[in-house]
Computed example of a mutant assay.
Amino acid sequence: MGTGSNSSNDLVVPQASQALEQLKFEVAQELGIQIPQDGYYGHMATRDTGAIGGHITRRLVQIAEQSLARR
Results as ranks from 00 to 15, higher is better:
25 F>C: 09
9 N>W: 02
48 D>Y: 03
35 I>D: 08
53 G>Q: 04
34 Q>S: 09
4 G>Y: 05
17 S>P: 01
7 S>N: 14
49 T>D: 06
43 H>D: 12
51 A>K: 09
44 M>C: 03
9 N>C: 06
3 T>C: 01
18 Q>G: 02
10 D>H: 05
26 E>V: 04
40 Y>G: 07
46 T>K: 15
7 S>T: 07
64 A>P: 01
18 Q>L: 04
13 V>C: 02
26 E>S: 08
23 L>P: 04
47 R>S: 14
67 S>Q: 12
58 R>F: 04
26 E>G: 00
24 K>D: 09
60 L>W: 02
50 G>A: 09
38 D>Q: 04
16 A>G: 06
55 H>K: 14
26 E>W: 00
17 S>A: 14
10 D>T: 09
33 I>A: 05
52 I>H: 01
65 E>F: 01
12 V>K: 08
36 P>C: 02
2 G>W: 06
10 D>E: 14
52 I>R: 06
68 L>C: 14
33 I>C: 09
64 A>K: 10
61 V>S: 02
71 R>E: 10
23 L>S: 03
30 E>N: 07
46 T>R: 13
20 L>A: 00
68 L>W: 13
21 E>S: 14
59 R>H: 03
40 Y>Q: 13
44 M>L: 11
15 Q>A: 07
53 G>H: 01
27 V>S: 04
22 Q>T: 11
59 R>W: 01
13 V>N: 15
68 L>S: 15
54 G>H: 08
9 N>D: 13
59 R>D: 14
67 S>M: 11
3 T>S: 14
35 I>K: 03
16 A>P: 02
1 M>I: 03
37 Q>L: 12
3 T>A: 08
49 T>C: 03
58 R>E: 14
36 P>I: 06
20 L>E: 05
1 M>V: 07
8 S>F: 05
17 S>E: 15
61 V>Y: 00
23 L>E: 10
61 V>E: 10
60 L>S: 01
39 G>Y: 07
5 S>R: 05
5 S>E: 09
6 N>T: 10
68 L>I: 14
57 T>V: 11
6 N>C: 00
42 G>H: 10
63 I>F: 05
18 Q>C: 00
64 A>D: 13
53 G>W: 00
5 S>H: 12
57 T>A: 13
28 A>Q: 11
59 R>G: 04
68 L>Q: 14
53 G>F: 00
25 F>T: 13
41 Y>L: 15
4 G>A: 08
62 Q>K: 15
39 G>N: 08
31 L>E: 15
15 Q>R: 10
18 Q>M: 04
51 A>C: 05
51 A>Y: 05
37 Q>G: 11
28 A>L: 08
31 L>H: 09
16 A>S: 11
21 E>C: 00
39 G>S: 10
33 I>P: 13
30 E>Y: 07
26 E>H: 01
10 D>Y: 02
19 A>W: 02
20 L>W: 10
38 D>F: 00
53 G>S: 11
8 S>L: 10
63 I>V: 14
20 L>K: 03
26 E>D: 11
22 Q>H: 09
10 D>W: 05
68 L>N: 11
